[in-house]
Design a protein around this nucleic acid. Structure first.
Lengths: 103, 103
DNA sequence: ACAATAACTTACCATAATGTAATATAGTTA
DNA sequence: TAACTATATTACATTATGGTAAGTTATTGT
């Protein structure tokens, strides 16, 4: 996508304005989670989109990924400080949704 | 798109989580604007996407569209109360963008 | 009569986002 | 030795989003 940012808002939307990103960040607000548990918080997401989305978020420095060298694999995701700085926004978006769900 | 909402946040993102919607809403925060003026605030948007997006926003009750029966046409867009209720969120998103632009 | 105007609308095409299903990995347990 | 595990990857298909360029409208100014 040709990501032009005519204003800061646009920059933000290009970073988190997708179907799954805010949802994943939101579920990590309560603390770090193993990959499987995080994914189960979002039943509708496919395996592929989950991996793809957390990779994107990691690339953009919003979450961190810690791999434990065990078998079967163990991976934990958590918010970075940058990710945490979105907390108010994520909660506001969620709140707005709950207030406007019925319309 | 199959819009499933496992949490309110998802509902919100399905409503405004696109490339242009937040931008248009944002520029209407300062008051109503004629179609052409609004579009010029967002130089990168194509004619088609502009119309398509304002129609979507109108359908979802976030903006209102007033047509003046004159020639050449005159159309004004403004935020509805529902749209105005996004003000804090829009400004927060914009603020976050300006604070994280450089990274 | 004819171009200029503002706000669309349409047809057509390209790219990005998302989905499904199958497969890989390699120790642990049966 | 074969199934089980949690995590991830790959190939392939579909749907959503975005873009370009041309056409439409009806009155006003020339």
């Amino acid at each position: 996508m040709n990501k032009v940012n005519s204003c800061p808002l646009n920059f933000t939307m290009n970073l988190i304005g997708t179907k799954w990103k805010p949802l994943i960040l939101f579920h990590l607000l309560e603390g770090s989670l193993r990959s499987g548990k995080l994914q189960k918080k979002i039943p509708e997401i496919s395996n592929k989109m989950f991996t793809q989305t957390v990779r994107d978020l990691e690339k953009d420095g919003l979450i961190s990924r810690k791999v434990f060298p065990v078998v079967p694999p163990k991976v934990k995701y958590s918010l970075t400080n940058k990710g945490k700085s979105l907390e108010d926004i994520l909660r506001s978006l969620d709140k707005w949704g709950s207030e406007n769900y019925l319309d």
